[in-house]
Write a protein that binds this DNA or RNA. Structure first.
Lengths: 109, 109
DNA sequence: ACCGGTACTTAGTTCTACTATGTAGTGGTA
DNA sequence: TACCACTACATAGTAGAACTAAGTACCGGT
């Protein structure tokens, strides 16, 4: 992963994962592969699991353990109301930053 | 500063400052007030100075000390070719992230 | 003599992503 | 049977960036 991308993901990766969870429950391994499909090819597995632990402890998601046919049991994460609220705030924060940056880029500048 | 914003600024603040410096040299105190005018009202002064030290050590800017009529001498920063290159990479990285996020937001999702 | 505004510095903390490694379950195959 | 690949999760230690908090220093006006 480029150093720039690593730093830029700080703060946004959590939002990305919350966004992936809206309307669709998912488990860690699945989220990792989803991220890779979306272009984040170099996201470390450990990063995702650590993030999931974090958002669970923050109470943003509900967790349910389900057996898998192909390996150890899965931990399936579902966005709860508090997580939805956090996601809304995330979009607000990101919109602000995004608008500032587009402004700067336009100014050519 | 909101915690979300603090985390999201990691990686982007450097790009923002480099962008502010394109075509226009500036000194630390000036950059801090510029950022505040652009809406980053809660950026800590220490953060900006630490960042300037960093980009100077990375060789992205040239520095010149100039006397001030109103206080201690100013350290005026100018973007050099390497800084311009870094800024270009920053825009690439940011574009990628931005497109991914807009995609996610659109998906509603 | 003091205070507010200008201008820069830095030690220590917090938070997040990464590296590296480990544990476990399942199915296929030599 | 032993091994391997894939699935699935966990975690200790490291690095990097923004923050907190405090300080130094220069100038003008009251």
């Amino acid at each position: 992963m480029g150093k720039q991308m690593t730093e830029m993901l700080k703060g946004t990766l959590e939002g990305i994962v919350l966004a992936l969870l809206t309307g669709k429950a998912a488990y860690g391994y699945e989220i990792t592969t989803l991220l890779r499909e979306q272009g984040f090819t170099e996201i470390a597995e450990g990063t995702v699991y650590a993030l999931l632990v974090r958002i669970e402890q923050k109470g943003l998601v509900d967790v349910e353990k389900r057996p898998s046919e192909k390996g150890p049991p899965r931990k399936v994460y579902t966005l709860n109301p508090q997580g939805q609220k956090e996601l809304n705030e995330f979009w607000n924060t990101w919109s602000f930053l995004s608008e500032r940056l587009e402004q700067l880029r336009k100014e050519g500048n």
